[in-house]
């Protein structure tokens, strides 16, 4: 469904993606795991059209979407739930959902309202807080809102960047239940996660991204969870040969994490 071929992207002189090849199959849940700074978020932003790749091609449903504007990508049927949720804080829940359907506003107003009702059925908590400002919601509620907002674009492929980030374990479980439900209802999911344990439970296929390159591709079970977790958190990839102690350093440079 989504084919990524040799994508390279950079921030100034720092190359964050160094030729990524990756395939997301239609109908499944594909996970991308990797340590902080491996380029996961950069890849998501590049697919979504926010960042322009230096090299390589991205095609979706056999159409080349490389370098397309974000609105063009949304129109083709890809929606991204961004890292840290990024809800519109001073809009209420309902307005956030309306904004998510921006490209259909004006022309298909009744359809948008129908979709909002539909989303509220899936997320009753959001309906209860329909008039509440999104900035005042809890982290879990904001994550649900971010997912709901992305659904308002009627995506064929839903990409999610670390939806469990900073959430309590019970809430994480709820988010993963939602992911499974969405997938069961026919939406293809492409998930970036730090929580390898949860991700491997739902994934049909997963990739490991380390230092801007895919270093493993396979099904859960092909690699021991122990090894996945070690590589996903610490990035013990083949190219790295620094001592292990060096790798727990705080990874907050100018690059966005992931």
């Amino acid at each position: 469904m989504l084919e990524i071929d040799g994508i390279a992207a950079a921030y100034g002189n720092i190359e964050a993606l160094r030729g990524v090849d990756l395939l997301v199959e239609e109908g499944g849940i594909t996970c991308l795991l990797g340590p902080n700074g491996a380029g996961k978020t950069t890849l998501m932003m590049t697919i979504a059209g926010i960042l322009k790749p230096r090299r390589g091609t991205i095609s979706f449903l056999d159409r080349n979407i490389t370098g397309m504007t974000p609105s063009g990508v949304v129109r083709r049927g890809i929606a991204l739930v961004p890292e840290n949720r990024l809800v519109f804080p001073d809009m209420n829940v309902h307005e956030n959902l309306v904004a998510g359907a921006y490209l259909r506003l004006g022309k298909r107003k009744s359809q948008v309202q129908q979709d909002i009702d539909h989303v509220f059925e899936r997320f009753p908590r959001l309906q209860e807080r329909s008039k509440q400002m999104a900035g005042t919601l809890s982290g879990g509620e904001q994550q649900m809102l971010a997912v709901a907002r992305a659904l308002m674009a009627r995506p064929k492929l839903l990409m999610m960047d670390e939806p469990s980030l900073g959430l309590a374990p019970l809430v994480v479980e709820e988010i993963f239940r939602i992911i499974s439900d969405l997938n069961a209802d026919g939406t293809t999911i492409f998930l970036v996660e730090q929580n390898a344990h949860m991700a491997l439970q739902v994934a049909d296929h997963f990739f490991l991204l380390e230092q801007g390159q895919v270093t493993f591709s396979g099904k859960p079970g092909q690699l021991s969870e122990h090894e996945v977790i070690q590589r996903a958190y610490l990035g013990k990839g083949p190219q790295r040969n620094q001592p292990a102690a060096d790798q727990g350093r705080p990874d907050r440079t100018t690059l966005p994490s992931g």
Binding site: A48, G49, I50, P70, S71, V74, R75, A79, L80, P82, L86, V87, F88, P89, D90, M91, E95, V98, A99, G100, A101, Y102, L103, L105, A146, R149, A150, M152, A153
Partner: peptide, 18 residues
């Protein structure tokens, strides 16, 4: 909607197609 979305969260606004 577009104006307020861009003001509050420009990345998310773009992701919504604005």
């Amino acid at each position: 909607i577009a104006t307020r979305a861009v003001a509050q969260q420009p990345v998310a606004a773009q992701l919504a197609g604005i």
